[in-house]
């Protein structure tokens, strides 16, 4: 059951930002993640500021330069089904279609998706963990089968729960953010907070800032994107391991590419190792095997998530092979 809170649904971004100045005020977009957090009493909330009525945050269109502009309140389903997305950013459409369940895709928004809280069961559950201001990360010695193999930094071992975020990073997207001091743009790659920097925040957003739009630059000619996700069951489940790819091909050769892992780290995890291994190469089986091996070379598994090493290798091999076959 939810705690008590004030509720307001302003119609302008400015008003929403003003309301967010109040003590323990939080943003409500689709509400799917926020309400789950409220039920678990994960953080104090005194005021819920719903931005769902702010008109300018809805919808998808194409900018003059060919960039895709996605309003932060665009539902995940719309992202998955929108013809523009499907045609030009198939990896993004794919990742959106793999999120949670149909109902949650109908309700959850792309802005909310990239701002969602981790699914670590210690964080969500009745445990006063590091991320909630406590003194312990229970995952270190506990039930860490769903936790990270990269980037834990010795502090907090969550994985970033989003499927969409890794694709946006792979596609070099930017978040447009509005706050009391105006509007700024943050590359998605720099949007997520690593735990060793600040263990209690998942993004670089300032307290009163709101994501208003996602900008995806037009892909260079020859670019193909894809997303592949492995989960413990086939619906309503987060990634055990996933890979988002945006590769630019010249014939069969990879000119350059961005490869971002989900289910791997506290933030969408860009695998420089894979990118370097495939750059300038044709994706033959040797290159693919080398890339998959390189991907996990630096992994630091915990007690119960060692399976993620062969799993990431397998997922990367499979997905690179698929890309290669369609090249």
């Amino acid at each position: 059951m939810f705690p008590d809170f004030d509720y307001v649904r302003p119609q302008s971004l400015q008003a929403a930002i003003t309301h967010l100045a109040d003590e323990a005020a939080v943003v409500h977009a689709g509400g799917t993640d926020l309400l789950g957090c409220l039920r678990e009493h994960i953080f104090a909330v005194k005021k819920v500021v719903s931005i769902s009525a702010v008109k300018e945050l809805h919808g998808i269109d194409e900018a003059a330069d060919g960039a895709l502009r996605i309003g932060a309140l665009t539902t995940i389903r719309t992202v998955a089904e929108h013809p523009l997305v499907r045609r030009r950013f198939s990896g993004l459409a794919q990742s959106a279609s793999e999120v949670a369940s149909p109902q949650l895709r109908n309700q959850g928004t792309i802005g909310g998706n990239i701002c969602q809280k981790p699914r670590c069961w210690y964080y969500r559950g009745d445990f006063n963990c590091l991320r909630k201001g406590g003194g312990t990360c229970f995952a270190v010695d506990g039930e860490n089968q769903f936790h990270c193999i990269f980037g834990g930094g010795g502090t907090c071992f969550i994985v970033h729960p989003s499927d969409i975020a890794p694709c946006l990073v792979a596609l070099n997207a930017t978040a447009r953010v509005a706050g009391p001091s105006g509007v700024r743009e943050v590359p998605l790659e720099k949007f997520f907070m690593r735990p060793e920097v600040d263990v209690q925040h998942e993004t670089v957003l300032e307290p009163r800032e709101i994501v208003t739009q996602i900008l995806v630059p037009p892909p260079a000619a020859g670019t193909r994107s894809a997303y592949r996700k492995v989960r413990a069951r086939r619906s309503w489940d987060f990634a055990l391991a996933g890979v988002a790819l945006a590769l630019r091909f010249d014939g069969r050769r990879v000119v350059e590419g961005r490869v971002v892992l989900s289910g791997a780290a506290p933030v969408p995890w860009r695998s420089a190792e894979v990118e370097q291994t495939i750059r300038g190469k044709e994706l033959d089986s040797d290159v693919i095997a080398a890339a998959a091996k390189a991907a996990v070379a630096e992994a630091e598994p915990l007690g119960k998530n060692g399976y993620k090493i062969p799993l990431f290798q397998g997922v990367i091999e499979e997905e690179l092979a698929r890309m290669s076959a369609s090249a």
């Binding site: 210690y122 086939r234 619906s235």
Partner: peptide, 26 residues
């Protein structure tokens, strides 16, 4: 069922996301 047997003894997957029933796709 997953108990945090080595630390707190508490059940960590007391919901339908973390305790996974088969869905229509399974």
């Amino acid at each position: 069922r997953i108990l945090d047997a080595g630390q707190t003894g508490k059940m960590v997957n007391r919901n339908w996301h973390d305790y996974k029933l088969p869905t229509a796709l399974d």
